[in-house]
Design a protein around this nucleic acid. Structure first.
Lengths: 167, 167
DNA sequence: AGTGAAAGATTTCAGGC
DNA sequence: GCCTGAAATCTTTCACT
């Protein structure tokens, strides 16, 4: 099926600047996301300089990225070690039959656990916790153990620090 | 050894407001951290209103929290699903003898992997990746498989979304 | 630490290309 | 969609309580 797409009646605009309503990002949007992930509080003037656009245009794009849900918010990064939580641990857990709800509740009610995913496969949960020492690690594990099997590991290093997917 | 600490010559200040140089946070610091984690771009005036302190004082505290390394930075939160990465997967991996360096390199060079921890115990690495579909999941795994054993899971939900440790 | 005000930036809004 | 320029806000800093 052939449809003439060129030379149709339309305003003479740079085709490369056209972006479909909610799909892909152009290279400038990608640059904006990278800069905002690195520093959410960068001034608009500095941001616009780095991506090569005027401040109002950058403002429009940032607002659009927020509106369509690509940017969901802005947060401060906290160093748990400086708060006294010197150990980061990962806990894999599989609830006993009938204990799923109790295990979820125990995980959510344990403040040292800062993130938890439910995953497919043998393990059911993978949780991340920050603790002050091994004794507190044990205490955290003991909150989950009543409801199933756990397997804990101490994080030694992070070969990949939190980063953005390819754009 | 007895040293008189009360009634010594000092300015009459509220003892509860004294904070040692780099140790604990008072409840206002904790409130500031919570607010900034929830919204790093909150205006100072609004922040000071929420924590019940004047804007200059809040500014001082935020600067201090940055200076002593508790706040390490500010970042934008991105929704990978809106970028087309509809699947989040966790990959546990253990390198074959002599393949440790190659596995680390493969992990770091795979852009879909957005975080990776090296942990103690049987598994050596726990990586998080965002992929567009199962085919891309397979492609990511295949980049690591040559260097050791892997065990992959699909993230189904997150009972605990990224949150701050107790303060 | 708080208040109040002034100076410096930033974000936002016009109007035009 | 982007730019220049001005208005409205916000942040920062300073002096003083």
């Amino acid at each position: 099926m052939y449809v003439a797409q060129s030379n149709s009646r339309k305003k003479e605009k740079e085709p490369s600047n056209l972006r479909s309503k909610e799909s892909v990002l152009d290279s400038i949007d990608a640059a904006i996301l990278r800069e905002l992930c690195a520093d959410a509080r960068i001034p608009r003037a500095e941001l616009s300089r780095r991506v090569g656009l005027s401040a109002p245009s950058v403002g429009d794009r940032v607002r659009r990225l927020e509106d369509i849900g690509i940017i969901t918010g802005y947060g401060a990064r906290i160093d748990p070690a400086r708060l006294g939580y010197g150990l980061t641990i990962l806990i894999r857990a599989r609830p006993l039959p009938g204990e799923m709800a109790n295990m979820i509740e125990a995980i959510q009610d344990t403040p040292q656990i800062v993130a938890c995913d439910r995953v497919s496969g043998e393990d059911c949960f993978v949780a991340r916790a920050h603790v002050r020492d091994v004794a507190e690690m044990e205490a955290v594990i003991d909150r989950i153990v009543p409801f199933g099997a756990t397997n804990s590991s101490i994080v030694q290093s992070s070969p990949v620090e939190e980063r953005l997917v390819e754009l």
